[in-house]
């Protein structure tokens, strides 16, 4: 998003006060007269009004804990060194940021034309993070996957996520080979293999559950795919161990 119209900063700097009724009557009247003549300032005003309306419609959405402090700081004071016209969101720097919900609710935003742009972005960010927060509230951790002691199986229990089609066949084949090789492997080796495999299965299960919550999340899809490939590499490595034990 960009905002280039800054032809009359003497007026656009007062947009918030104008909308909030904070201008003295004489200045308010002069501003109205200017708006009647200046289309660009009217556009800025309409943009700000849209932001306000959308913000009101959001309701009490809480930002996520790690980004909000920086965003709020940006609203209070533009980020140092920000290029003119850039959309700048300063994330927390050295210190871990925590939500400042109270101050956000009571924060009275006085926007310059540049800050208006930032506010628009904040709105988008706020919406997205609010969604994220809801998603993240669902537990992703699951009870530890216990390595089974069942005969002939080197697989942790409880695997629910199906593998990608292009990996399924090889994964199945390797798992079967490992299961059949259980009897020839040293018990300690079996223990190690099962334990490591359970870690991967846990990661798969976590990722799968997260993806179920957020099916459109490209990161989660990529993450799950990566973990599956890691499982495949691990099973190949385990198969080499089996071969060397033969």
């Amino acid at each position: 998003m960009t905002y280039k119209d800054n032809e009359h900063p003497e007026w656009t700097d007062r947009l918030s006060d104008f909308l909030d009724g904070g201008l003295d009557p004489e200045t308010h009247a002069a501003f109205e007269a200017h708006l009647g003549e200046c289309g660009s300032c009217r556009g800025v005003l309409e943009g700000l009004d849209e932001v306000r309306r959308r913000a009101a419609a959001l309701g009490p959405i809480e930002p996520t804990r790690d980004l909000w402090a920086g965003i709020a700081a940006t609203i209070r004071a533009p980020a140092a060194g920000a290029a003119e016209g850039a959309t700048v969101i300063a994330l927390p720097t050295a210190e871990r940021a925590r939500p400042d919900i109270g101050s956000r609710r009571s924060h009275r935003v006085s926007l310059s034309s540049m800050q208006l742009v930032a506010a628009s972005l904040v709105l988008v960010v706020g919406s997205s993070l609010a969604t994220l927060t809801l998603r993240s509230q669902s537990p992703t951790s699951t009870p530890p996957v216990a390595a089974t002691g069942s005969e002939g199986v080197i697989m942790p229990a409880g695997t629910a996520a199906p593998p990608p089609a292009d990996l399924a066949l090889e994964l199945s084949s390797l798992e079967q080979a490992l299961a059949e090789a259980r009897g020839v492997l040293d018990p300690n080796t079996v223990r190690i293999l099962e334990r490591n495999l359970s870690v991967i299965e846990q990661a798969i299960e976590d990722s799968h559950r997260a993806l179920m919550q957020d099916p459109e999340n490209a990161f989660l899809a990529e993450h799950l795919d990566r973990v599956y490939h890691r499982k495949l590499e691990y099973l190949r490595e385990a198969a080499r161990v089996v071969e060397s034990a033969d």
Partner: peptide, 12 residues
């Protein structure tokens, strides 16, 4: 997915 981000660098 469920983490925090902290940066020593200013972030645009």
């Amino acid at each position: 997915f469920d983490g925090e981000f902290i940066s020593d660098f200013p972030v645009v």
